[in-house]
């Protein structure tokens, strides 16, 4: 078993357990308002921690590549473009940027 197999098994386990517990103990779990709020905020803060500063390392040599992508995606999301389209358009923009770079 290599590192990746351990990761897959481990992630599967820690993701399944929180999903399973409510299915068994339905109606018996109640969180305080604060705990519930904390759990609901986790996805926001996790996403943030992943984007900043990771987005700047999308291309190890050119830090601004990631920044361009993030700005494009943010702009499209602001205009309420659907998720899938945002991802595809951002990729297309970056491919265009890559093809312009040799010319500069």
């Amino acid at each position: 078993m290599n590192q990746a197999d351990i990761m897959i098994l481990g992630c599967a386990l820690v993701t399944f357990i929180p999903r399973l517990i409510p299915a068994i103990f339905v109606g018996k779990i109640n969180f305080g308002k604060k705990t519930e709020k904390f759990l609901n905020l986790l996805p926001y803060t996790a996403l943030t921690a992943l984007i900043v500063p990771g987005v700047l390392t999308v291309d190890n040599q050119l830090w601004y590549i990631g920044l361009i992508g993030a700005v494009v995606a943010a702009g499209l999301a602001w205009k309420k473009v659907p998720l899938g389209a945002i991802v595809i358009l951002t990729v297309i923009v970056l491919i265009s940027v890559y093809s312009i770079i040799p010319l500069i």
């Binding site: 926001y44 998720l83 991802v87 970056l94």
Partner: peptide, 21 residues
């Protein structure tokens, strides 16, 4: 170049999920 550009797709997704909030 295309696979390199795919690297941005996950960040694009994260950003897109965050922006409405």
């Amino acid at each position: 170049i295309v696979t390199n550009s795919f690297n941005i797709s996950l960040y694009a997704l994260f950003v897109a999920i965050l922006i409405p909030s």
